[in-house]
Write a protein that binds this DNA or RNA. Sequence first.
DNA 1: GGCCGCTATGCAAGCGTTTCCAGATAAAGT
DNA 2: ACTTTATCTGGAAACGCTTGCATAGCGGCC
Lengths: 339, 339
Amino acid sequence: MTGIKDVAERAGLSVATVSRALSGKGSVSPASRERARTAASELGFVLSYHASSLASGRTHNVGLVVPSVHRWFFSAVVEGASAALLEAGYDLTLYNIGENAAHRQSVFSDFLLRKRVDAVIAVSLELSESELQQLHAVHRPIVGIGGPLPGASTIRIDDTAIARQATNHLIGLGHTKIAHITGHEAYDQDFHLPGTRRSGFEKAMNDAGCPVRPEWIVSADFTIEGAYAAARQLLAGEERPTAVFAASDEMAIGTILAARDFGLRVPDDISVMGIDGHDLGTVLGLTTIDQDAKGQGALAVHTLLGAITNGTALEAADTQHPTRLVVRTSTAVPPADAG
Amino acid sequence: MTGIKDVAERAGLSVATVSRALSGKGSVSPASRERARTAASELGFVLSYHASSLASGRTHNVGLVVPSVHRWFFSAVVEGASAALLEAGYDLTLYNIGENAAHRQSVFSDFLLRKRVDAVIAVSLELSESELQQLHAVHRPIVGIGGPLPGASTIRIDDTAIARQATNHLIGLGHTKIAHITGHEAYDQDFHLPGTRRSGFEKAMNDAGCPVRPEWIVSADFTIEGAYAAARQLLAGEERPTAVFAASDEMAIGTILAARDFGLRVPDDISVMGIDGHDLGTVLGLTTIDQDAKGQGALAVHTLLGAITNGTALEAADTQHPTRLVVRTSTAVPPADAG
DNA sequence: GGCCGCTATGCAAGCGTTTCCAGATAAAGT
DNA sequence: ACTTTATCTGGAAACGCTTGCATAGCGGCC
């Protein structure tokens, strides 16, 4: 393997000068820089990542922790973050936690702490006080997406407000009999999204004087399949709502599919809407609130990179990411007979 | 930051012994091992990743290159690989290439080659002869998934055979008027999957004496949305096929949605099947050929890890991954009037 | 009882960079 | 002409581990 020494030799320079020439730090005469560069490329030399990380303390690597790349929202965030990092010359180390709680633990103690990342992006992950402190102790800036991280910088959307906005969209169309598909309790522990969206829904209903019927609040696991099953149950009930607001697009899609299987037309017989901005939304005509997941991923990266290059500690700011109501064809006025 | 020195001091041992105790390599008395361990945990010590990589030459890190984590198949592979790696104590560096050709190039020269990974998994990516040689030159085992990598170990499914099997399933039900949704030409350049599946389809049709109608072969971009549009076009045609075989589940799903929007019942009016084993398949009752994407990811990891630990070069073997025909409710005998 | 072979340990030499420091040279100021 | 200041350069000390080599202990063997 050719090292920087070989390059120095070939260029007739010292190792130190070559290092400076190649990294662009410190002053080097244009002539030397050029000689270093050509020598390096002639030899096909590439810096040893570990050696330079060890010496400089910079890893040029960001850790991204997600529950599951298999779910739409997370993979969108990964895409956004990945592109931004690649652009900046950074590597992305992915920690796909999965269901396994043991994984989560080992990611923390064995991986994240091993000084192998310059920064961490945690998506929909609630970290304990002590975990955050460990991260702080090793001076790793961290930004959270979609979850409240006490004392860390976070990017998120105003879940209560958008749930309200979504509900109001339905109410504005004339619906009063609205059901809500929320997330299972388990998801609420880790991360309060289902509860927050649900409370936004309830507030809007109350404000409009619409009754919130407990049997019309069902929960699922945020997947299309899960919501499909839940929606079937909901629609099989005695009385049927005229609209369903699902806490995520995937669950809204599950609902639409269930409705179709019941012979219900969307939106004629029943309106459905979600939150996310899922790609499938266009095909299904899903009305939703787009939260620009990719953009959130990219923003997280830029925030971190800023902090890294400035060396400034990331302040614990809560950045509100903009959302956008996208009205398509899954919502309409309620059927006439449903007065 | 506490280093291994501090641990050694606290444990009353030498740095060397602590290193051996913690890594499990070399012989250490049970007593010393215990002392090293407790000292380490008391100090909250974690090995410096870069220092140990530099010293040992092992990075405990695998690079995974995919076109886009946003597509079902790739994210499933990532999930499978990720879990297997986490289990083995390895990190996963994700290179999400995306559409951008420049990214692809820089991933190669700037990232992969910097000795920062022990091995590489390339998914649906055709590497040039010289790229492969570069990788070999730095002694990095590589395994490919779903794409032929000359001179590298690959895991894949027999695309021709399963396309044939899928087509035969439809033919076996009595269909003769079968359409095929393939991938765009662009995808075929990088990687011959669409062409291979298509030829399997054509072979099966020919063998059965069924005519292959050019206007019934349409192409899409492997997404649900893309196939939806393509299928609409297909179904709007003069004469309608009684069955559609899509080259991927995502495209099959797009087809089902399009069929429904045309008022066609699946499978009564039209049968649809795909290839993949997409999660949504259960909800939509999609008949498919499950190719166990997660399993392929995990298998790739185990193959690599085997090679790494044995130090043996990975032979250029082509491993056939098993597939499984899953018959659900999207396929049935053709409608009676379609003779 | 002396010797062999084994395990357990420590010393110190790397691993391949970056960067501090100091020296050297050249330009600029007085 | 001589000091001051700025720009370049090289030597060498980190960075924090792993591991080859050498040594010390120790039970078993003839």
